[in-house]
Amino acid sequence: MKKMWRVIIAIVLIMILLGIVGVAVGFLTGADTARIYQTAESNSLISLIMRYYEWILQIIQTYKTAIFG
């Protein structure tokens, strides 16, 4: 288990590092968050996921209000 933890953490760290490098390269080469958001909204799949995400947030908020008042 300990060995597997080390392997998993190493893989995760490498992937996160590569992701950060990709995002950094993207922003250095002229990416714009507003443009990305605008394009994502027009994409039906991403807009669907965003609506699903908002729905989950609403459910959590409802339960939070019911439990903690």
Partner: peptide, 9 residues
Amino acid sequence: ADIMVLLGG
């Protein structure tokens, strides 16, 4: 550039 940002994410 946008594609790179999305792939990184």
